[in-house]
Computed example of a mutant assay.
Amino acid sequence: MTVASTSVSPIRVLIVDDHPMVRDGITGLLVRQPDMEAIGEASDGAEAVTRFRELAPDVVLMDMQMEGTGGIEAIQEIRALSRDARILVLTTYAGDANAIRAIRAGASGYLLKNCIRSELLDAIRAVHAGRRVVCSDIAHALAQHALDEPLTEREIAILKLVAEGHPNKQVAWRLSLSVDTIKAQLKTIFEKLGVHDRTHAVTVASRRGYIER
């Protein structure tokens, strides 16, 4: 009697990261898994979109911050190509604002690069199965700030200029706003972030992923 094969095709993973050593490390990890295979790599978001078109991977491992086209833009473009695309963010950026942007863009999961290998492998399997995955540190941050009012795009633009060291007058000039408007906006920003000065505002906004320093 002939027994039918029950083998299952491995999960085909596209690895997107601007550091070759990171890509090599993940590839080496996947090679040792009987249910996974690394089918391609990309070093930035634009290349990720091209490789996605070419390879149609089951899961995309996506870095957030890369030269040129970043992770958020790549996630949006890939999801525009396929609403069924499964994208797992793997990043060093722990801020809740970053995670929210990625999930809203269409990511199925958000992990930090310091996660243990088994966590990454389990996350790939979970995302492939259609589940959402968020690492515990990010989940805690999301819960902590769930009821906070988010910063607006204008407030983020102001904070970016403040982080660069510009005084209110220069911030106002660059954004074509009045100095009084900048002062009022900073007051609102301080309230939303729970801080009392510009330096602390920049520190908290950077930690939460609103801005980069």
Rank of each mutant, 00 (worst) to 15 (best):
M1H: 15
V3L: 15
A4R: 13
S7F: 13
S7Q: 12
S7W: 12
V8N: 15
V8T: 15
I11C: 02
L14V: 11
I15Q: 08
V16D: 12
D17Q: 13
D17S: 09
H19I: 14
M21N: 12
V22H: 02
G28W: 10
L30H: 08
P34S: 13
E37P: 00
G40R: 01
A46R: 10
A48C: 07
V49Y: 10
R51N: 10
R53Y: 00
D58E: 02
M62R: 02
M62S: 07
M64Y: 10
Q65H: 12
E67F: 01
G68A: 02
G68C: 03
T69L: 15
I78P: 14
R83A: 15
D84C: 01
L88K: 01
L90Y: 08
A94P: 00
A102F: 00
G106F: 11
G109M: 11
L112Y: 07
K113G: 02
S118I: 03
E119T: 15
L120S: 12
R125N: 01
H128I: 04
A129V: 13
G130E: 04
G130Y: 11
V133A: 02
V133Q: 04
A139G: 09
H140L: 09
L142P: 02
L142E: 00
Q144P: 09
A146W: 03
A146N: 01
P150H: 04
L151F: 06
A157L: 07
K160I: 13
A163Y: 13
H166S: 05
N168R: 06
Q170V: 13
L175W: 08
L175D: 01
S176E: 14
L177V: 14
S178E: 09
T181V: 14
I182R: 03
K183V: 04
K183A: 13
F190I: 01
E191H: 13
L193Q: 12
G194Q: 08
H196W: 10
D197E: 14
R198C: 07
T203G: 00
R208I: 02
G209E: 11
R213M: 11
